[in-house]
């Protein structure tokens, strides 16, 4: 993670670094207990009153539930300044929240990936915008 003051997420309301840790922005339904990501991706249990949906952050760390290595460049609208291909994609499980979230794997030897390994949420700079800000997405990396 670079200079956070100069970072901006390419799409807002998905990833937060204001606490000093990078964490995904989720929401929990206090009626049916389901966590959502993105937070607007409602997944209520049928019959739920849908009352008391509360924003919250997922923990910084989780476990690798699945992964793949993508060997072909992702087409637009995905955009990076540097070529990142081949790149890893991970599905990281946040156990207490009973949710798995997908994201690019960064800063990790792709040959070292193993199911169950501990991963932490971080940011990945994709490009610099006209205001000279680093435009980022969330990403996962192996805990060192």
């Amino acid at each position: 993670m670079g200079n956070t003051k100069n970072m901006v997420a390419r799409i807002p309301n998905l990833v937060d670094w204001s606490t000093g840790e990078v964490r995904l922005m989720s929401a929990k339904c206090n009626s049916c207990g389901t966590y959502f990501f993105p937070k607007e991706h409602y997944q209520h249990r049928p019959g739920c009153s849908r009352e008391g949906v509360e924003d919250g952050l997922l923990p910084n760390k989780g476990k690798l539930a699945s992964y793949t290595v993508q060997y072909y460049p992702c087409p637009p609208p995905f955009k990076t300044e540097k070529n990142i291909t081949p790149y890893g994609i991970g599905l990281v499980e946040f156990e207490n929240e009973k949710i798995q979230v997908a994201g690019i794997i960064t800063d990790t030897d792709l040959k070292s990936l193993k199911l169950g390994m501990e991963m932490e949420t971080t940011t990945l700079t994709m490009f610099t915008n006209e205001e000279k800000q680093e435009v980022v997405t969330w990403a996962f990396r192996a805990v060192k």
Binding site: I11, L14, A65, C74, P77, A102
Partner: peptide
């Protein structure tokens, strides 16, 4: 739009994640 701009996941990535599991 989020998956294309933020996670770079063409459709086969979804299948690969399930296949690995």
């Amino acid at each position: 739009v989020i998956r294309w701009k933020m996670t770079a996941m063409p459709n086969p990535v979804y299948w690969a994640l399930e296949c690995r599991k």
